[in-house]
């Protein structure tokens, strides 16, 4: 039996059966991190201040919340891939399996928590704006 073609090996048909999947995802999520974390860093510089009200109102807006939701998915995915490489280098045997298992659970849990926090921040912002709107119509509550 031959070794197949170079293209077939790259597509995951070689002996490892994984091809370049991990490597490619590390690059795709790196590009995502570049855009979304860069957006967060620039936003810190352009916010009027970093008080609760300013930051909550900014994060609770639709477009920043979308960018931060994408950021959470991208950074936790990238961290999961990167920490896996680190564990594969330094942890061996059954411990490696256990460590990668914990890593996967922690990465999903962390990303889910971040997305739920974002949803809560958006709800709080909506409520806060509704209350302000009512106060403007009715006078102080």
């Amino acid at each position: 039996m031959g070794e197949g073609t170079a293209l077939g090996r790259v597509r995951g048909l070689g002996p490892a059966h994984h091809g370049s999947h991990h490597w490619l995802l590390q690059r795709f999520t790196a590009a995502g991190n570049l855009l979304t974390v860069g957006f967060l860093a620039f936003s810190f510089l352009f916010l009027p201040d970093l008080s609760y009200e300013s930051v909550r109102a900014w994060v609770g807006g639709a477009l920043p919340a979308l960018a931060l939701a994408l950021m959470i998915v991208s950074v936790f995915w990238h961290a999961r891939l990167g920490l896996q490489v680190m564990l594969e280098d330094y942890v061996h045997g059954a411990n490696r399996f256990a460590a990668i298992l914990v890593l996967n659970l922690a990465a999903f849990a962390g990303a889910a928590a971040g997305l739920l926090f974002l949803a809560q921040i958006m709800i709080n912002t909506e409520v806060s704006q509704a209350v302000t709107g009512l106060q403007n119509q009715l006078g102080p509550l």
Partner: peptide, 27 residues
């Protein structure tokens, strides 16, 4: 990279969680 994953992500979640919880937690 490992520092960002092991320290940065927990700090990110603390920041977002505090922002979601309200002014006292953010304080």
């Amino acid at each position: 990279g490992d520092g960002l994953a092991l320290v940065g992500l927990p700090v990110l979640l603390w920041w977002l969680g505090a922002l979601a919880s309200g002014p006292a937690a953010y304080e």
